[in-house]
Design a protein around this nucleic acid. Sequence first.
DNA 1: ATCTGTGTACCGTCTGGACGGTATAGTCAT
DNA 2: ATGACTATACCGTCCAGACGGTACACAGAT
Lengths: 184, 184
Amino acid sequence: MSEKEHPTKTVILAAAATVVQRDGVGRLTIDAVAREAGLSKGGVLYHFASKDALIAGMLARMMSHFTDDMARSVAADSASPGRMTRAYIRATDYPDQADAALTTGLLAAVVNDPAQMGEMRAIFATWQATLEHDGLSPALATVIRLAADGLWLADLFGLAPPQGELRAEVLQLLLAMTQPTGEE
Amino acid sequence: MSEKEHPTKTVILAAAATVVQRDGVGRLTIDAVAREAGLSKGGVLYHFASKDALIAGMLARMMSHFTDDMARSVAADSASPGRMTRAYIRATDYPDQADAALTTGLLAAVVNDPAQMGEMRAIFATWQATLEHDGLSPALATVIRLAADGLWLADLFGLAPPQGELRAEVLQLLLAMTQPTGEE
DNA sequence: ATCTGTGTACCGTCTGGACGGTATAGTCAT
DNA sequence: ATGACTATACCGTCCAGACGGTACACAGAT
């Protein structure tokens, strides 16, 4: 999946994420990304022919990170029912802002290139379908999925994200909910 | 709370929500809002001195709608433990796009005026604190809150939002989780 | 009744700046 | 001599906000 990308492209993508995180999506301009990456505007456009292409790159990067995380978590979890659901919980958990920057691609797409949302929606639909057939009841799996998404949202926007002790308890509870014997 | 606002202001705010919903946040311009509201640009600026003021208005409107919903739900629920949590679940549930338009204020703020996010964060922190003292364990209350937020997010962006039967089951499960005897 | 003034609610135009994108000439390492 | 850029200049478009003006309702004075 992670086919050794051109190193400069990686730098540019990281710079774009930083700009969004620090200055807001509204300030995501090619100029700003170029400054942040230490390149000229022409340099950025050399690697990404347009702003939309840049956003597509951000989205692709975000997706591959997420699926890598999923794959790693799935591999480390042998119990069959709820395996995918647990992996989903772990993959969406980005307590530190640095990693959260990766998810800024979604925001950028929503604002600058809504057309790319179609792809995103399709991917979410796939995950949803996967979790519905993970050995748990579809409703329970969906509740867990939505809670994981909610945590991710809270982190991204800083909307009262649970931290420290409470966060640990929340994650633990979510994981416990994937066990057939629902005990706390 | 709802101090009879100037009717034209209401029209403008509704128009702004429509524009965001239909064309995307990136297309939220004073011109577009003016056209949608059947006014001139100057007319819009007469009522909202700046774009930021417009967004503040959208945010205020969204907040008052939400708190009204909360209050109504709380009043109709006599059982004391989990009362707030249940009200929160019901208040965030906007299956139809029309009402979802109200929440576009948040998006607009994120993109155009991140400074206004501070207020938003404070409000979320208050809700979070309220739910933590609703008679449920803080972790459980938080999980439910996050799931409700996640559902709202899924609706807003169209990210595999559960619908029909599954949605009803999800909502029922969330409400059931607020009952002391955790049975399904 | 009429004149004069005042406040409200707009309309239409304009300006200045930001931004995406293009073009071009040149640099430097391999 | 090709790839990976830098630097500068420029074009067209979009947009926020400022501004001058218009229409109308109402008030008080005469």
